[in-house]
């Protein structure tokens, strides 16, 4: 097995196993390399709870055979705390003990493992549960696009493999004043529209390997091939400028600006929203770390923002 983390995780995954069963511990040892998962096995449930709360793992596996506390009670205790709700929890039990009396609708487990179990099956199910938890936790709740963890993971992965790529950061100018004037739900409409334009354009120009993420708010990211990125940027800018006026009320649209309140509380006129895009390139493995890419992008973004109209700025140094 490779000495690398699982999936696109940037670090070793911590898995806490609460089970009196030495066979299960052995299966975990066979299923994962130490670089993939650091597996801690504790045989008692009650003693593990405090450690669990202060230093939560990436995944928790609870054995129904725990002697001191019923497995599902322990799961309920953890899941009732909002900060631990996203922790993926697997319950393991004997297949022969599965009965119609168990209320799975109320059981807040994310994965069920059954004995007899093999190392291969254990590896598959636990890996899937970890990846699924990351996906659903990370996805932007509005647009459902991958969020920060996936974005950083994707960029760092490309950097580590020294692949050439273009990384574009896009955000909206005057989005806040639009939100202030029209309210959050109208603002969400604009974000959904923007996401749709970026996804379609990037997929049409960049092909299936291109990636689009939603950092949050009005910040979006896309990654694609260097030679096609300018075409995609020009197309996103043109589509956005064509469509966004339709999200304003007719009077504001005809006027070409809206009256809203700025950060200091003064009433003033704001132009219609525009999209600014900054593009950073990684050629010949020049970038070493994700932070370099985002820092360069932020500098470029300032330049793009100087223009009140929609525009894109390419990193000249290696563009």
């Amino acid at each position: 097995m490779p000495a690398a983390p699982l999936c696109a995780f940037t670090r070793t995954q911590k898995i806490l196993v609460l089970s009196p069963d030495p066979e299960l511990a052995a299966l975990f040892a066979a299923a994962f390399t130490p670089a993939e998962a650091e597996v801690v096995v504790q045989t008692r449930g009650k003693g593990a709870i405090e450690a669990l709360f202060t230093d939560p793992p990436d995944m928790l596996v609870v054995d129904a055979k725990l002697a001191d506390i019923p497995g599902l009670d322990l799961v309920a205790m953890i899941k009732s705390e909002n900060v631990y709700r996203q922790l993926p929890v697997a319950l393991i039990m004997d297949e022969s003990r599965l009965s119609p009396d168990i209320d799975w609708c109320a059981a807040e487990v994310d994965e069920l493992l059954t004995r007899p179990m093999t190392a291969a099956m254990l590896r598959s199910r636990v890996t899937l549960a970890l990846a699924r938890a990351t996906r659903s936790l990370d996805a932007n709740p509005l647009t459902k696009l991958p969020g920060n963890t996936s974005i950083i993971g994707r960029i760092q992965d490309l950097i580590d493999r020294q692949e050439d790529f273009a990384l574009a950061y896009a955000d909206l100018d005057y989005f806040k004043s639009f939100n202030d004037k029209y309210g959050f739900s109208r603002g969400d409409e604009v974000l959904m529209m923007t996401a749709r334009i970026i996804v379609n354009t990037v997929r049409a120009v960049g092909g299936p390997r291109a990636f689009v993420g939603h950092v949050g708010g009005d910040d979006f990211v896309y990654i694609m091939a260097i030679d096609r990125v300018e075409e995609a940027c020009a197309s996103v800018v043109a589509s956005f400028d064509n469509i966004v006026p339709h999200f304003y009320d007719t009077e504001d649209r005809d006027r070409g600006f809206i009256q809203s309140v700025d950060r200091e509380g003064n009433r003033r006129a704001f132009p219609l929203m525009a999209i600014s895009i900054a593009v950073v390139f990684n050629r010949d493995g020049r970038l070493k770390h994700f932070g370099e890419a985002s820092q360069t992008a932020m500098t470029l973004k300032k330049k793009a923002k100087e223009n009140p109209k929609s525009c894109y700025v390419l990193d000249k140094r290696h563009g």
Partner: peptide, 10 residues
């Protein structure tokens, strides 16, 4: 035209 940009060819 706008609808097609937002829906995509897919």
């Amino acid at each position: 035209g706008h609808a097609l940009v937002l829906l995509g060819f897919n």
